[in-house]
Design a binder for these strands. Sequence first.
RNA 1: GGCCCCAUCGUCUAACGGUUAGGACAUCGGCCUCUCACGUCGGUAAUACGGGUUCAAAUCCCGUUGGGGUCGCCA
Length: 480
Amino acid sequence: MTKPRVRFAPSPTGYLHIGGARTALFNWLWARKTGGTFVLRIEDTDQERSTEASTKVIIDSMRWLGLDWDEGPEVGGPYGPYFQMQRLALYAEHANRLVSEGKAYRCYATREEIDALRQKLPEKKRDGFVYPHLWRDKTEADWIPGAPYVIRFKTPLTGTTEFVDKVFGSIKTQNSVIDDFVIMRSDGVPLYNFGAVVDDVTMDITLVARGSDHIINTPKQILLYQAVGGAVPEFAHLPMMLTPDGKKMSKRLAEQQGIDVPVERYREKGWVADGLLNYIARFGWSSGDQEIFTRDELIEKFDWAHCGTNDGRYDKKKSLWVSGEHLKRLTDEDFAAKVYPFLAGAGVTVAADDPRLLPAARTVKTRSARLIDAAEAMAFYFQDAITLDPAAVEKFLTDEARANLRALADVLDALPDFTEAGIGAAIEAWLAERGFDIKTVAQPARVALTGRTASPGLYEVIAVLGRDVAVRRLRSAAGA
RNA sequence: GGCCCCAUCGUCUAACGGUUAGGACAUCGGCCUCUCACGUCGGUAAUACGGGUUCAAAUCCCGUUGGGGUCGCCA
């Protein structure tokens, strides 16, 4: 049995869409699981919108996600080039052959001409407008020398096209509802359906997995595979990822609901790639009751049989939970290294070899959903002068509390064993001696040390801060 | 509107004719506790509706309703 060859074929018109990342992931998982080949192909035939910058963004996002490709941009491969605009001659060759074989034809009708026909229709029927077979039955003798033309596919008028989708099962379409769609523009650049088919055939793609919004294109493409004379690959369509209110995930609509669409946003906000992959993998796929998967587990357990058919809505809270679960599973060292780059964004300058980095990071690891949250939560450790939350000051830094903080500062100042355990023991002894409950000083001290009312445990905060800073902050708050 | 697809807790889902319809997020309550988290224990919560088929239907069939996708010289 031959190894699968799958592909992810984004068009470089912006960024890597979160839904596109899911498509890429499933293809990649299948390739990695089966020992097959994952091809990255850039479909840049929309010259209006395609940019090199976008190609770079997409490639960067793919690399960040760790979805490495075996063939494609930057790595090359035996089926290259992997940019469609570099394969124009190939498409022309196939298109011309289709024309000479009578499977496609030149259409000299102009856009204006066709649009005029559409406008003649009653308003409510315009949506259903299909190209009338203006040039379908003309011959070479009718061609207009020198005039621009497009090439249309001569779709069979009768019969049905059926395919068995690996996740949706059998899907049938009457050929009569498919119009004679354009496969080549007048400037010789192929359109999506044709370019994809020619490439899939010439790149020996065996399985096409993509969003279910492409189910509608599949019959057209099957007709094209057959016309071109290539093997029809298998298809696996994936249900759509929708916004929380169930709409197509456009950037604008999603962002209104607090959902990020470009993958780069997730990187910027401190997701780890494995966490994002985990979350999007669970869209349309499941493995029993398991929710958290490592990358290797995803590869090991992924299959098409457990892909579902119903569209899913993005759940922000669950996504954050998944992200947090992945952070929790990082080693302290790895976590610290990953938070470090986010510290600058949280407004503090920290040396990469600052000894407080690891212990500080450790204290916020289980408290953060994303690295950006962790960085924000640990910034107080590194600030020269912290700003106390006014409301917290008002509530907790009473005259009595200030006096206690002063006394606490003295205790810490004189403490020989300045470790978390030593600090805890000393504070508790001091509390016992005075007959105080820790609750009488915990919040005031927390405000004094961190500026806020929520933070990691008091003793660990003091230990990480170090004697000098802790004592100084306590005294400063006491005197302020 | 035409065509295609889909339908289990609020959300993501398990179930592949026979289960007290399970799990997770969220939510509510308890425990833990110096705050916030983490952890832990427990609760509320679903088979859209109507017909069939069958001894037996969330599972199969039909219809209704609802939702999504798609109707470009975009991909």
